[in-house]
Design a protein around this nucleic acid. Sequence first.
DNA 1: GGTCTGAACTTGCTTTTTGCAAGCGCCATG
DNA 2: CATGGCGCTTGCAAAAAGCAAGTTCAGACC
Lengths: 139, 139
Amino acid sequence: MARSKREDWRGCPIRFGMGHFGDPWTLLIIRDLMFRGKRYYSDFLGSGEGIASNILADRLKRLHSAGMIDKARDPDNRSKFIYTLTAKGLDLMPIMLAIIDWSATYDAATEAPPEFIAQLREDPDSLMRTLRARLLEEP
Amino acid sequence: MARSKREDWRGCPIRFGMGHFGDPWTLLIIRDLMFRGKRYYSDFLGSGEGIASNILADRLKRLHSAGMIDKARDPDNRSKFIYTLTAKGLDLMPIMLAIIDWSATYDAATEAPPEFIAQLREDPDSLMRTLRARLLEEP
DNA sequence: GGTCTGAACTTGCTTTTTGCAAGCGCCATG
DNA sequence: CATGGCGCTTGCAAAAAGCAAGTTCAGACC
């Protein structure tokens, strides 16, 4: 096998996952959408890690064509675009939470709030419901 | 912020994760170790996706220095090395299973065995225990 | 309706990472 | 002590990422 482009990776579930987010940036964008309430291109640009604008544009395009995010004009300011997670994107939440759990364990400098981690370990399902509900009712 | 090398990414749990496995190859190696019983350099090389030997050597080095895998001479053939998961590497299992779950949902061509997915969704904890036990008792 | 501004990209160029093919050193076996 | 498998390393070409500057388009203001 091999030799196919990564976007075409499928079959093996881990390989399929890597085809979609096997790079350093994609899941950081998902994080911004999922946990930090960010919605605009300029929000992602200023997100701390310093993603380059061309890479950001490319990743947004890929996420959109993979059906993980939607893109729409901001009704309050039609010169801006609002990006939001689709169901497929929201369904990445268990992956994100598993990463957060692992990192909270192994990163001595973790900034994950202790009560978030506590709830994640005690009752992950209710935490997920809370987070999803918050995302769906956002303005 | 920004400008630091990815190996030094920490603080934010997602960023920390991406610093460790924010590339297409690392988790494929973990998959081979975790689900496919692979242990040798040559096993990983021949794993279907066609990783280049220099990249493989580099990723094994990183995984080892991050404490996610061990490297030891094969007692049966001292010209070979055996790679195994450490506790830190084994603890990636929830992430791997979450990826598998997501991919089984969204990859129409998934090769994940249906009964594996069924058990993953019904009783993930017992599946995890089974998988971990199998890894620990391996020859 | 002309100009200005902010937001969302795009372009061109440099640097870094990856991919590929070949080679090298070590240990086991005959 | 030659041969061959195994685990890498090296050199070079191709692709991706990073950086700075430029372009486009919508809306606001004049």
